[in-house]
Simulated assay, not measured.
Amino acid sequence: MSSATFSYIYNMKHLALLRGINVSGHNMIKMEALKLLLEQVGFNNVVTYIQSGNVFVESEEESAASVGFTIKQEIFKQLGLEVPVVVINKTDLEDCLQNNPFCKEKDVDTKKLYVAFISKELPSTAINDLKISQFKPDEAVVKGNKIFIKYHVGSGKTRLDQKYIEKKLNVIATMRNWNTIHKLLEMY
């Protein structure tokens, strides 16, 4: 009797957050086309959520940075679009729910809560570089690869946006509202 050797392929589940697609007629990508493109380059179980660029993929690749680079590269090769990508995992989303300092406030309006996901870990001193005081009454807290933001009026009426964050911190940033973060965690 011979013994058989089995090898199991373990797929990691990643959440790719594409920045700046399908906004005001720029970087238009249909989610069905994106799904097909990512499946053709070897990603499995590709699932998209809404048109703003939330894409779950499974891959043997463990490195979030490698997954993000591949997605960005393929979008450029196939569609000719330069789209920044930040890849996160379930733990990042769970951390948002557990550690958002603004959720601890009484009567917080969750419609004004956002999280900027950053392409790298930030030192706690990064908040000084953002010069948040000039955006009062908007507030922000830096924690690792996330910036928790509470807008006073709303995200469309402030200069504290992802372009500002990227410029000041020399990073890639993409923002999601509180409801989207809840839904993405649910989808995991």
Rank of each mutant, 00 (worst) to 15 (best):
S2C: 12
S2P: 13
S3P: 13
T5L: 14
F6Y: 11
S7M: 12
Y8A: 15
M12A: 11
M12K: 12
M12S: 10
K13A: 05
K13P: 01
K13N: 10
H14C: 00
H14G: 02
L15R: 01
R19W: 05
R19F: 05
R19E: 04
G20A: 09
N22A: 02
V23H: 06
S24C: 08
S24Q: 11
S24R: 07
G25T: 06
G25E: 05
G25F: 06
N27T: 14
I29K: 00
K30E: 15
K30L: 14
M31I: 06
L36I: 15
L36V: 15
Q40F: 13
G42S: 11
G42K: 11
F43Y: 10
S52H: 02
G53I: 03
N54S: 09
N54R: 01
V57G: 00
V57R: 02
V57E: 01
S59F: 05
S59W: 04
E60A: 12
S63G: 13
A64S: 09
A64V: 05
A64P: 09
A64T: 03
A65I: 15
S66P: 10
V67E: 06
G68Q: 03
I75G: 06
I75F: 06
F76R: 14
K77N: 10
K77V: 10
K77W: 07
Q78K: 13
G80M: 08
L81C: 11
L81W: 08
V83Q: 08
P84W: 07
V86H: 01
V86Y: 04
I88F: 02
I88D: 00
N89T: 10
K90N: 07
D92G: 04
C96D: 08
C96Y: 06
C96Q: 07
L97C: 05
L97G: 06
Q98Y: 13
Q98H: 14
F102P: 01
F102E: 02
C103Y: 13
K104C: 07
E105P: 10
K106F: 11
D109C: 07
D109T: 01
L113Q: 02
V115W: 00
V115P: 00
A116I: 03
S119N: 10
S119W: 04
E121A: 13
L122Y: 04
P123R: 11
P123L: 11
P123K: 11
T125P: 03
I127F: 08
I127W: 03
N128R: 09
D129T: 13
L130N: 09
L130S: 08
I132V: 12
P137S: 07
P137E: 08
D138M: 07
E139W: 01
E139M: 01
A140W: 00
K143V: 09
N145S: 14
N145C: 12
K146V: 04
I147Y: 00
Y151G: 00
Y151N: 00
Y151V: 01
H152Y: 14
V153L: 12
S155R: 02
S155T: 02
G156N: 12
K157T: 10
K157Y: 13
T158K: 04
R159G: 15
R159D: 12
R159M: 14
L160A: 10
D161P: 05
Q162H: 15
Q162I: 12
K163H: 15
K167L: 13
K167T: 14
K167P: 05
K168N: 11
K168D: 11
V171K: 03
M175S: 08
T180R: 01
I181N: 00
H182T: 08
H182E: 12
M187R: 06
M187V: 01
Y188D: 06
